[in-house]
Design a protein around this nucleic acid. Sequence first.
DNA 1: TTGTAGGCGTTATCAA
DNA 2: TTGATAACGCCTACAA
Lengths: 338, 338
Amino acid sequence: MKQKITLKDIARELGVSISTVSKALKNSEEISRDTKERIQAFAKLYNYRPNNIAISLKNKRSRNIGVIIPNIVHHFFTTCVRGVELYANAKGYNVIVCLSDESFDKEVINMEMLANGSIDGFIMSLSMETMMKDDYNHLKEVTDQGIPLVLFDRTTDEVVCDKVVIGDREAAYMAVKKLIDSGRKRIGVITSDDYLIMVHDRMEGYKEALTEAGISIDENLILPMSQMQFDEEAVNAFLETQKVDAIVTVNEIFAVRAMKMAQRKGYKVPEDIAFIGFTDGLLSKYANPSLTSVDQHGELMGEHAARMLINKIESEQEEETYTTEILKATLIERESTP
Amino acid sequence: MKQKITLKDIARELGVSISTVSKALKNSEEISRDTKERIQAFAKLYNYRPNNIAISLKNKRSRNIGVIIPNIVHHFFTTCVRGVELYANAKGYNVIVCLSDESFDKEVINMEMLANGSIDGFIMSLSMETMMKDDYNHLKEVTDQGIPLVLFDRTTDEVVCDKVVIGDREAAYMAVKKLIDSGRKRIGVITSDDYLIMVHDRMEGYKEALTEAGISIDENLILPMSQMQFDEEAVNAFLETQKVDAIVTVNEIFAVRAMKMAQRKGYKVPEDIAFIGFTDGLLSKYANPSLTSVDQHGELMGEHAARMLINKIESEQEEETYTTEILKATLIERESTP
DNA sequence: TTGTAGGCGTTATCAA
DNA sequence: TTGATAACGCCTACAA
């Protein structure tokens, strides 16, 4: 087993000082051609690599960025992480991924774990529990310390920092408008009772599109699921009692499951009922019929978040300007709409 | 902005030495109750937290583990990462996730980036390109340096280290046997032409089950996709020319897509053709009909890998024993099989 | 051209 | 009971 070699080792072996070695390996002009060559050859032979940790300590920069997401087994977050990774790696940063598992405590623990030098900045999406508690002190502490933070998707106005979100209201509006334009009148929505802004925004967009088309809001057509859990019975009752001709949902799982139930009841999709989901993942793509869905561009979102963060990290001056980027969602039309 | 406070700062403010502060904060018996209380109160007030990087440098341990996977937008790998995270976090480790994107070069770069002190050990699954090139020098270098490595799922015999894999042969055998037991005779398989051991193993299991049941292997029933890309035309031709009564596939996407095509052709699932996929993800669960699938227990796999790695990291002695854990896959029966 | 010394933040050993 | 010192690996201003 060949142990890692350090500057000190090289210096000892070659009978020179550590700083000579350090300079030689940086190809410094100060060092004679001769010594440089000797040292570089030796370093190469023994495969010398500077120790990241020592450099981090010296520079007070780790070149790591911390990403905290509520859940990784989730297509949208997964694409975001991918976007962050690709951009960050290209810029020479590593990505430390932590999962809050939708728990406030885990979120706090993860942040504390990383905030002590391990990372140069955070990219995160809030856990459900955090949003319910409406407690953002852990975030404020981090920003107070001057650690850059970028919130994405699940954000809050309580914390002053850079943000990247999708235009949820517009996206929902767009989806519903498309249904109206194709003649649908009784448009149901399967939503959630969560304290998520995005859910709220999507509902706004839904209502706006209806109102604009002169269709009055029928509260019976709004079916909230509690805790993001799909409730088969409720949906069953909903399908039986409300004669809907279209359904939009706040995620793709709800759409695919509701669609399957409707099909089993003998409805034809999209002829009898059209469906539009949110979050364009594998499910939408491969459902039968394939699902028209709102693409939230997770990868792009991750990339933007990473770009904003790294800009902040690398900008010398303490700018106190924070921006919120609003990305535009796109409707991917497939077989579940006419 | 309140900057991070260090031992030195506390020492200066309270007029004591750095080592006194250090000891006091560790509640050392050496320090008088009085000074300890003063120091601890001050530290608490200013929210002192030791700097991880300095501790890493001192201890030559980072408490980070590096995970390198080919792709994160993939249900199986995602569940593995989750398993690693949960176990590692519980043990006080952070997880640095890097994506090789199925590229040999990226895999090498990522490993080099992390291998210089950033992490205490690696958990990884090989990229396709690495397996094709059959070049594992980057892995060998890492193990030569004494950095613990655990390979999972996509492994190789070329590298001596701990491994965690699923019993692919048995899993495929089990799936095919189930089809045979329910009376199916012409069992097709949609596979891949990749250099992945798992694909090879699954084909072995397929053949074994048939042979055992006295059914001869019909090469026409074996349809390889190149580069893991689903080829609609090929599957179309396959469905038309081969009168299969069941199809097993090496992943869930192939199964769901083939199933959809079969349904469009008027076949009833599972009555006319039964389907079994590999990798039990959302697609299998929510397909219509839902798909019987082989669960590879990604989360458990990740957890095992993390456990093996952390054991190695924390074991004092240089044991030179490496084990390969073979996890048992399970068949999740749903609507796509009788 | 090369080397010395101090520092990044922490801990451990030993001296006072 | 407290403090000085060295060390982890690297960098750099300054001295030789």
